[in-house]
Write a protein that binds this DNA or RNA. Structure first.
Length: 509
RNA sequence: GCCGCGUUGGUCAAGAGGUUAAGACGCCUCCCUUUCACGGAGGAAUCACGGGUUCGAGUCCCGUACGUGGUACCA
């Protein structure tokens, strides 16, 4: 307890950063910050065949957008560098050798073909498992079966080999998971996992344990898919560093697809029409772009919020949390055991809430970009912010500001005259002609003034205001949506208002 | 197949043996608004199943079903 809390997020740079990945980062981050600890990002790039250019930089971009800044990482320095496992390659070997020396691991020279043959044989024998374990290892080509001199000869000859952990039979590995409580594993179900690959790189199993030790990690949080290999890691801790130094584990529940079965994948997003990655990911090989939450118009505050409450809640009715509140209220014990299906409708609701809640200044820059990418140059930022304030409660995603607010900047592209025509007649036509004259002479242009003059004129013409407001709205907006008509008229100004009324009037002739 | 983990409305979920089983999203109705939203009021809809334990079980135990993950020189 006297040690400073240190946690890590350890992604493989193999592609886009998935919702589940961001949530793992988030829970790590929240836990670290809550306990005044350090949040470390370590790049687990031990599989050279899966390396993807740009993926690492992309991960850091996502973290930056989310506001989850690491204390130590490839980009943030720290006392335990390097933070990229490929650069730590030499470190791992000595631990693997140590395990061999202590009798907990061995060299295995079996070729892929021989391994396949072994599995075929087990299958024929009707064995329930096809594992490389105590049942078969004495029939295999490894240093356990070979004479020491034979092993040495193979080694000297440069024969390719891996180092495997020697899992003893009939042993129980108990451990406590912060979320799931006490769990017991039977070693008979675990195989002699490869620790060091033929290319000299460690596998995940060796690398996590060694690095977590070296980097003084106190709490290790990862996805539930790692639970079955936990006994291997625990054994390695026991053999290498001692169980008393082992971090506390928590295996986070999975995020599942909304329909059907299984883990949420990128393909589900494509299929169901929502993003699965935090930010746009462009595949360097195929150039295919996969949409991200940021780009479709999510606020980072909302993204973080919705992820936090997917599998966790503080036991109250509260659903909207700022990052500061999350840090204060988060606890690993309240994380669920079961996986949660992702619901995009609810995700959008969070964004809507955050758009309403936040001052428009927080996201005006992005909305400005959206307008500009739609061909509307914003020359007056204050006017933009005013418009945003007027329409924000109708916007769920950031691009909605364009849909809801373009008519403040340009004449409506199309005018829904069909909505006016059924109740249109000469009397109403004359009313609007007169309205133009009245408003042209008006020196006051506040929405309340406009409403008063509009209503007075309607009364004088013995027309119901209500029947005239919809036509006015259509004239100014183009359709049946948007904030109060008089507020719109006031915002767009006298000249534009009159021009739009005249234009629609001519359309109605 | 084997091993692990899980299971409260359609979805997210509160719930630590005694509750009329919260709340939210979505859906429906109504009010507000002569637009669309926002806001407000209401509605439909749930403890996977079977056995125990107990005066009493969504809550504890055991089975079953279902889901999910793992079973690679991937992480």
């Amino acid at each position: 307890m006297s040690h400073k809390v240190r946690v890590r997020f350890a992604p493989s740079p193999t592609g886009g950063l998935h919702l589940g990945g961001v949530r793992t980062v988030l829970f790590n981050y929240l836990f670290a910050k809550k306990h005044g600890g350090d949040f470390i990002v370590r790049i687990e790039d031990t599989d050279q065949s899966r390396f993807v250019t740009g993926a690492e930089a992309y991960i850091f971009d996502c973290l930056k957008w989310c506001g989850l800044t690491p204390d130590e990482s490839v980009l943030h320095d720290g006392a335990y560098a390097p933070y990229r496992q490929s650069e730590r390659k030499e470190i791992y070997r000595q631990y693997a050798e140590q395990l061999i020396k202590d009798g907990h691991a061995y060299y295995a020279f079996d070729t892929p073909a021989e391994l396949e043959q072994m599995r075929e044989l087990l299958k024929i024998k009707g064995s329930s498992s096809l594992q490389y374990d105590h049942h078969v290892r004495m029939n295999m080509n490894n240093s356990l079966r070979l004479l020491p001199i034979e092993t040495q000869q193979l080694l000297d000859a440069g024969t390719p080999y891996v180092i495997r952990i020697k899992i003893s039979a009939d042993e129980f590995i108990p451990f406590t998971d912060m979320i799931r409580g006490d769990i017991n594993f039977d070693t008979n179900a675990v195989d002699d996992k490869v620790l060091l690959k033929a290319d000299g790189m460690p596998t995940y199993h060796l690398a996590v344990v060694v690095d977590d030790f070296l980097m003084k990690i106190t709490h290790a949080f990862r996805g539930e898919e790692w639970l079955p290999s936990a006994p291997v890691h625990i054994l390695l801790w026991k053999y290498l560093f001692g169980l008393n130094k082992m971090p506390q584990w928590a295996h986070l529940p999975l995020i599942l697809k909304p329909d059907g079965n299984g883990k949420l994948s990128k393909r589900d997003g494509d299929r169901l029409g929502f993003p699965v990655y935090a930010m746009d990911w462009s595949d360097p090989v195929t150039n295919e772009i996969t949409k991200g939450f940021k780009e479709i118009g999510f606020l980072p505050e909302a993204f973080i919020n919705l992820l936090a409450v997917l599998g966790w809640n503080d036991g109250t009715e509260q659903e909207i949390f700022s990052i500061v509140e999350l840090i204060e209220k988060f606890s690993m014990e309240k994380v669920h055991k079961g996986g949660a299906k992702f619901d995009f409708e609810k995700a959008k609701w969070f964004n809507h809430e955050w758009i309403k809640k936040l001052e428009v200044d927080h996201y005006a820059v992005r909305v400005k970009e959206i307008f500009e990418s739609n061909g509307i140059a914003i020359t007056d930022d204050n006017y933009l912010k005013k418009v945003m304030g007027l329409v924000k409660e109708r916007c769920t995603l950031l691009p909605d500001f364009f849909i809801q607010g373009s008519f403040f900047f340009q004449a409506p592209v199309s005018i829904d005259t069909l909505a006016i025509k059924p109740k249109w007649d000469e009397k109403r036509n004359l009313f609007f002609m007169e309205l133009i004259r009245v408003w042209e002479l008006s020196t006051l242009w506040e929405s309340t003034d406009l409403e008063i003059s509009f209503k007075e004129l309607a009364a004088a013409n013995q027309l119901k205001t209500g029947e005239l407001m919809l036509p006015l709205r259509i004239m100014l907006v183009g359709g049946k949506f948007g904030p109060g008509v008089f507020e719109i008229a006031s915002a767009i100004g006298k000249e534009v208002t009159i021009k739009r009324i005249e234009h629609t009037l001519s359309l109605l002739q």
